[in-house]
């Protein structure tokens, strides 16, 4: 793999505050190392901007290993960029070519208001989880590992849904700005486990209602969410959410 430096033209959304008017600003980087991660390139750009006395670009990040769900960037019109099953922090510049122009925009949704530049407020997701995405039983000390037997298949399905990191890519990529994949995964992960059983009806109803309350759009089954999800969560989660919701109506 080449270590040759690349020239990258960036068009980055800059917005001073929640109510300011934003715009795409052009930056050209002529010394991008292909082994840099996308965020490292932003660090490098910010260092240069600061040296020039300009305000650095705000962007969210934390673990930088694809598990915290903090980073959120629309890269060339795709949530987290072009690489399958990859969060923006794990995307590397070798995925691009010398001379490329890259659009970088924040998640766009009414329910995710922009705070500054590329940073959006995703607390709407927290409120969906607060509505019912938990098990409110005080279990005391940890029980013996095999005291409650759960079939491997069920445990695996629940685990697949539980890998959701709440990054919001599903909403960002959805033409309708629907939060159905996120909410579906949070409901479905409990629907396969005995721990989720006692509150399953209240959970499904409360979380689906909260999703609408937050101003996310309806799901039109575009399945774009599954395509961009860094954890590759299937839209089966959405089908499960719908089943759980309908079942919750009958006692």
């Amino acid at each position: 793999m080449s270590d040759q430096q690349m020239t990258i033209h960036l068009k980055v959304w800059r917005q001073k505050g929640p109510n300011s008017k934003g715009e795409l600003v052009d930056y050209t980087m002529d010394d991008v190392n292909p082994h840099m991660s996308f965020l490292e390139m932003f660090d490098w750009l910010n260092e240069k901007l600061m040296k020039q006395g300009e305000e650095p670009i705000e962007f969210d990040h934390d673990c930088r290993e694809g598990i915290c769900g903090s980073c959120n960037m629309m890269i060339n019109g795709q949530a987290h960029g072009p690489q399958k099953a990859t969060a923006a922090c794990q995307l590397h510049m070798r995925q691009f070519s010398d001379g490329d122009t890259i659009y970088v925009e924040p998640w766009r949704a009414k329910a995710f208001p922009i705070i500054k530049d590329l940073v959006v407020d995703r607390s709407a997701f927290d409120r969906i989880v607060e509505a019912g995405g938990y098990v409110s039983v005080n279990t005391g000390g940890a029980v013996d590992a095999n005291a409650q037997l759960i079939p491997k298949k069920e445990a695996d399905i629940a685990f697949d849904y539980a890998t959701c990191i709440g990054c919001g890519a599903c909403v960002a990529a959805c033409p309708n700005s629907s939060a159905s994949l996120f909410t579906g995964a949070k409901i479905a992960q409990f629907a396969h486990l005995p721990q989720g059983e006692p509150e399953r009806k209240e959970r499904a109803r409360a979380m689906v209602d909260q999703m609408k309350e937050e101003g996310f759009g309806d799901c039109s089954n575009f399945a774009e969410c599954e395509a961009v999800c860094p954890k590759e969560i299937s839209i089966t989660a959405i089908a499960e959410m719908r089943r759980e919701y309908v079942k919750s109506l009958f006692d």
């Binding site: 068009k11 019109g77 795709q78 925009e105 009414k110 033409p175 309708n176 759009g217 089954n221 575009f222």
Partner: peptide, 25 residues
């Protein structure tokens, strides 16, 4: 549903592309 979708994203993207399969877009 179409009106709701417009309300849910008042400001659109300058650049938007589908990621392709498994997308059904």
């Amino acid at each position: 549903i179409w009106l709701e979708k417009r309300r849910a994203r008042p400001v659109g993207y300058e650049s938007y592309n589908s990621r392709g399969v498994p997308s059904r877009q």
